[in-house]
Design a protein around this nucleic acid. Sequence first.
DNA 1: TTGACGTATGCCGATATCGGTATATGATTG
DNA 2: CAATCATATACCGATATCGGCATACGTCAA
Lengths: 113, 113
Amino acid sequence: MARAATTSDVFNAIAEQQRREILVLLRAREVPVTELAQELGMTQPGASKHLRVLREVGLVRDRKAGKHRLYGLDARGLRPVHEWTGGFEQFWNESFDRLDAYVQDLKQERQEE
Amino acid sequence: MARAATTSDVFNAIAEQQRREILVLLRAREVPVTELAQELGMTQPGASKHLRVLREVGLVRDRKAGKHRLYGLDARGLRPVHEWTGGFEQFWNESFDRLDAYVQDLKQERQEE
DNA sequence: TTGACGTATGCCGATATCGGTATATGATTG
DNA sequence: CAATCATATACCGATATCGGCATACGTCAA
């Protein structure tokens, strides 16, 4: 079965480093594929494929602009990810406490050896 | 090259639905593998493997507890994801405007046909 | 229409994933 | 120690990924 298709899941789409870089770049402005590929040091087909994935999950959209095709950001799809991770916010601090308990536990184990 | 190893990247680790479910479950309490597998309807080896990935990216830690091995949440690794997506927050609303412009563009294209 | 530019797709190889089953490893109890 | 329970790992098959190269498709201008 392998992994869920990147094309159907925002979490998967942004699991790829280069795609995240693309999104960051698109935060600044709309960009045609060629320029994007150049700036991020990827091949044009490579960039095209990543953009396809991003488009299919709705994080990016494109519009014709003369000879070019401009890609632009549609960040709404990132909101669920932000909110999901936000659901763990209360644990970011608490985690220290738990970690502390964990460390205590380790110490105890050592003493028992 | 395939995808970046899930084991070295939190974004990849949470790209998997079942692993996200595990994290949510661990928000409530520490749990041994068997129980976790049962509650989430996966096999024990399956759960074990997912936990391994989560442990290797630091989202989960384990401690011995008698005959069991309890897995607990360490959500700190989710913070970078939250913050990264948060970097797009200002675009969630703006996206509507851009989308609007996009729609206008589509209309225009149709008229040109 | 032809040519030139911009972009997308097809195909391939190498690799990693995920799920399942069987089995090994570990830990606890009698 | 042996038996039992808990957990991890190995191996496998099916599939999907990503990158690169070649090439098809699309669009504009002369």
